[in-house]
């Protein structure tokens, strides 16, 4: 039993059909549970007050924003190397999810930053990197939309994803370098993960698990949709040919 068997669209649809319902349930329970735990049952931070509750949305979405791109990169590589259609479609399905995650991370960051730093936006390396990531998602999705032929689109977007990943990493370094140049050492970045107290950490872990699960569910479901759309156009093409 090899993992590549799931690269068969039918097999993929049959298997996801079975695992999706429990996964939907799991992600819903984890996210609702984690958020309720975090929102209602954690104390305020002595420095940041109630705003610390934003962490339960901010950190998991930021985590998934990056991991979604990473997953797209892996899926693109699989498409380029092994030419499994399901892989290309999974990359396509993940992009909008990643885009929304990036947007949530950016917006919650801005809303959080307003009272904490006194500004909605700062050209902090992390924020800037996410903005650049957001632009990459936009371009990637726009390229998928612009091309009619699915295999051509898969090829082009895969290579864009590979090249884009290199440039995204470069941007990350560039941005780090650039902002240190602006305000020497005065960093606004929130390295919360390292000093988060346990009270905050446990609900955060639950939320992170929930977001991961939500991402998986969404991607599986959306990949299924893409497979069906692809199958439909294949059937229609066949119908045209038999006329």
């Amino acid at each position: 039993m090899s993992i590549w068997e799931y690269a068969n669209p039918k097999k993929f649809l049959r298997s996801t059909e079975r695992v999706l319902p429990p996964l939907w349930l799991g992600s819903a329970v984890l996210i609702t549970g984690g958020l309720i735990w975090g929102f209602f049952f954690t104390p305020d931070d002595y420095r940041q007050g109630a705003t610390v509750k934003i962490i339960y949305l901010h950190v998991p979405s930021a985590l998934m924003a990056i991991n979604a791109w990473f997953m797209m990169l892996v899926a693109s590589l699989i498409w380029v190397i092994r030419r499994h259609h399901v892989s290309a479609l999974a990359a396509r399905a993940a992009a909008p999810v990643g885009l929304v995650m990036t947007l949530i991370a950016l917006l919650t960051g801005a809303i959080w930053g307003q009272p904490m730093w006194g500004t909605w936006w700062a050209w902090d390396p992390r924020l800037t990197s996410f903005l650049v990531l957001f632009l990459f998602y936009l371009g990637y999705i726009a390229l998928w939309q612009a091309i009619d032929d699915p295999d051509t689109a898969a090829d082009l977007t895969s290579i864009l994803c590979l090249v884009g990943s290199v440039f995204a990493v470069l941007s990350r370094y560039a941005v780090n370098f650039w902002n240190q140049g602006l305000h020497q050492g005065a960093s606004l970045s929130l390295d919360k993960e390292e000093n988060v107290a346990d009270v905050f950490a446990y609900p955060l872990y639950v939320c992170m698990a929930g977001f991961i699960l939500l991402f998986i569910v969404l991607v599986l479901y959306r990949t299924g949709t893409e497979i069906r759309a692809r199958r439909m156009s294949a059937l229609l093409a066949r119908e045209r040919m038999s006329e």
């Binding site: 209602f40 705003t51 949305l57 979405s61 959080w112 307003q114 969404l218």
Partner: peptide
């Protein structure tokens, strides 16, 4: 819970995030 002076901030962050997730979910 008493959100203190940050009530608007926290609630708007939750609102925006959940709204976006909901939109994504509905569209999907």
């Amino acid at each position: 819970p008493d959100l203190g002076k940050y009530g608007d901030t926290v609630l708007s962050a939750y609102g925006v995030s959940l709204l976006l997730l909901l939109v994504l979910l509905v569209l999907t």
